[in-house]
Structures are given as C-alpha cells and as structure tokens.
Amino acid sequence: MKKIFEAPKSLKDNLFHYCPGCGHSIIHRLVAEVIDELGIQERTIGVPPAGCAVLAYNYFDVDTGEAPHGRALAVATGLKRVLKDHVVFTYQGDGDIAAIGTAESIHAANRGEKVTAIFVNNGTYGMTGGQMAPTTLPGMGSTTTPGGRDVVRDGAPLDLTQMLATAKGSVFLERVSVATPKDIRKAKKAIKKAFQVQLDGLGFALVEVLSPCPTNWKMDPVAAYEWTDKEMTKIFPVGVIKDITGYDKD
C-alpha cells in the first residue's frame, strides 16, 4: 500500500493535550510541516512560552528551550546571537507576546533579530482559565471582565503586530487565521515565508495566527471557528501588515 499522507517528521508521535477544537494543534502541524519542507529540523531551536503551548516541547521534534512568561524573544535573541547559522523560532500566545512580553517583542523586532515569531491570538488567557487578554474583543466575555470587555473600563484590544510594523528591524509581518481550510493554507504560506526571511538573514519576521479557543469562549468548536472568522477578523483583519522582503509578490 502506498502512503500518501503522514505526520510531519518534526512532530513527535505524542497525543496533543489541547482541548477539542483548539487552534494550537493545527498551528503546531503547520509549523512542523514548514520545518520539514525547508529541511531545517536539525538546526532549528524552538522557544515555547508560558501558556497552553508551554508543553510544545512534547510535540515539536526539535531542540527546545523554555522561556519565562513573555521573555521568549529575549531568550531567542540570546540563542540566535550564539547560533547564527541556526533557525530560532518562538511560539507565543497573546498574553505572552502582547502583554507581559510587549517590551521584549518590540525591541527584538526593532533590533531586527533574525528570528521567527509565531504569535497565536485567541483573545484569552487559555491556560489560566479565560481571563481578559490584551487582544480580548470589546464586549467579549472573560472571567475578569464582568459583562464583557468594556473599552472604557478595561482598555481596547491591542494590535501588537501593527505596532511592530513601525519597528525598523521588522521585515515581514502577516496576520492569518486557521478558521477555514482556505485560511489554513494561507497561514502555512505565511509561516513558511517567515522562516524563509530568517534563512535569508533579512531580519525579524512574525506571523500572527487568529485561533479559536472553544473551551474558554464557551462555544462548541464549529461556533468558535465561525466566530474567529466573522468576529475576530473585524478587529484583527487578516492580511500582510508589513513586507519589505523584496520577494516576488504572488
């Protein structure tokens, strides 16, 4: 029998602990496929965050070093400065990269660190049980915003990726989604490009992935994917936010 589909080499043969319908499983797979396709598994180092993806080292079959909450891009800076010919990527949630780690993110981008950041935006602190995230949408429920996020009381959602666009060292920034199969294909393309930017030594690259969290959104998976597609994209429109790679547009 001919094998026509298999798990990526860069994923370990472990069952995901993620909740049913969680976007992390899809995004993990996309990153692993990209690592396989670029043939960089043996020289890639991953930096997982604190948050639901803290256990990413159980899944990615590459060297991984755990960063304190929010500090992934500082740890990645240290790694990449030593291992210049290696590929270093961070995998961070919205709370990690856009709240507690905002300073590390902006300055890593501004220095043009030659690393790739995968920023998973699900609008909530998943692992701690659904508190308000920097990216929680106005009116959206959370365990720390009674009656939903009130922008006067709680502030408005922060668009970190847009902020990073002003940093001179950022080269490629794109927001994608995993809400539909079409989105997933686009997401993979963006992730691949963000790794290519690093391989070409151009500077900082980041892909923000809008991702459903059915558990903390208190929705079934189908509704959560629909909500990602319809509601999240209103505040966080998908598309290329910055691209000065000079690669041919496709």
Binding site: I45, G65, A67, R71, A74, G78, L79, E104
Partner: peptide, 13 residues
C-alpha cells in the same frame, strides 16, 4: 529583564 533572558538563551546555546 531582557538582559537576563538573553543570558538564558546564550547559556542554552
């Protein structure tokens, strides 16, 4: 904060 975390990264390497 960033310094010590860069130290962590370089030490890992």
């Amino acid at each position: 904060l960033a310094s010590i975390n860069m130290v962590i990264g370089a030490a890992m390497a």
